Amino acid sequence: MAIEFLQAFPDLDVLVVPIGGGGLISGIAVAAKHIKPDIKILGVQTEAYPAMKAALEGREIHPTKVTIAEGIAVKKPGQITREVVRQLVDDILIVKESMIEDAIDALMEIEKVVVEGAGAAGLAAVLQFPDLFRGKKVGLPLCGGNIDPRTLSFCVMRGMVRDGRISRLKVTTLDLPGALARVTAIVGKVGGNIAEVYHQRQFATAPVKYTEIELVVETKDRMHGERLVKALEDAGLEVTDTSGAMAMRG
C-alpha cells in the first residue's frame, strides 16, 4: 500500500494510518520510510481503544466502551508491531467517536465511498486536528468497507444533525384551533421540510392553556435553520432547539 501511494504521489508529506494490532501501520512505515525517509507516519486510534499509544507509554488499558471503529478495537497490540511503531511512527493521534462518524458521512457524501469506522479513522484525525495537516499533502488509507446499512444510515442522519441540516424544535403556543396549521405554514414559507410532528398536550410541560408542538425539520444548512427559528419567534412563538443542532458546530 505504501509503495503504491508513493508511486502515485511521490511528494506526499504524511501518511495517516489506523492502528489496531499494528500490522498495517508497521508494514506501511517500513516501506514508506525506506522509499522516502523524511515522510511522516501518523497512527490513529479511537479514544475507546488507545491500546498502542498506551503500550508505548508503558500503560495498560482495560477498554469498556463500544466503538464504531470495530476493526481497530484491539485491547493489546502485538509485541513485534509495537517495536516497529516505536521506531518508525512519528506520533499516534486519538480521535473522538463523533469525528469517526463525521468521516464516514463525509466520505460517502463527497467521495461516494463507503467505509467502515476503522477505515475512516485517518480522515477523522484530519478533521479533528486540521492544524497538523494544513498545507501538507496527506495520504489516507481507506482500509475496510465492512459497515452495515443501519450503522451507515445512523452516521448520515447524525451528521446532518451536527451540520444543522436536521433539527428538532419545540414550539410552545396557545392551544387554539389552527395553532398547528399556523406553525407548519411558517415552516413551509421559510422553506423547511417537516419530517415528523409530535403534538403534545398530556405530556407537555407548558401551562394547561398552551400546547407544545415538536417538529423534526430538514433545512439546507445551519443558517437556513436559524432563519426558520427566527421566523417562528417573530410570529410570537416560543421556540427551543431540543436537538442542540444550532450549537453543536458553531
Rank of each mutant, 00 (worst) to 15 (best):
L228K: 07
I61H: 04
E4T: 00
L56Y: 12
A8Q: 14
P50Y: 00
G145K: 07
V113C: 00
A51L: 01
E109H: 04
A73N: 00
N146Q: 04
I39F: 00
L132R: 15
V30E: 10
G250F: 10
T211L: 08
Q79M: 13
L152Y: 00
M108C: 03
A231G: 09
V113F: 01
E111Q: 07
P18K: 11
A245E: 02
Q79Y: 14
V85C: 13
L42A: 04
A8I: 11
K189S: 04
E218S: 06
M248D: 04
V190H: 11
R165L: 08
E116I: 09
L107Q: 13
T211Y: 04
K40S: 13
T184R: 02
A55Y: 12
Q200H: 14
T173Y: 02
C155K: 06
L123T: 08
L232V: 15
F9W: 14
Y210K: 10
A124Q: 03
V229K: 14
D90H: 15
V17M: 00
T240A: 10
P177W: 02
I194A: 08
L169I: 09
F129N: 01
L142E: 11
M1P: 11
A103N: 00
V126S: 06
V171M: 08
T172R: 08
K137E: 09
E4Y: 01
T242H: 03
R182K: 14
L169G: 12
V239W: 05
E238R: 01
F129V: 13
R168V: 10
L6C: 04
Q200R: 15
V89K: 02
D11Y: 05
K209M: 07
I25N: 06
R86H: 13
G225K: 04
V95L: 00
A32G: 04
L123I: 13
P141L: 02
P50M: 07
T173N: 05
I100S: 04
I92H: 11
T46H: 02
S26H: 00
P18I: 15
D131L: 04
I39V: 12
I147G: 01
E97Q: 13
V114M: 02
K76S: 13
K170H: 05
A206Y: 04
L228C: 08
L88S: 12
V156N: 02
P141K: 03
I92N: 02
Q87T: 10
A231D: 11
I110M: 09
L174F: 15
K65M: 12
A247F: 14
L180H: 01
G178M: 10
Y198S: 08
I147Y: 05
M99W: 03
L176S: 05
G191V: 08
V197E: 06
G188T: 08
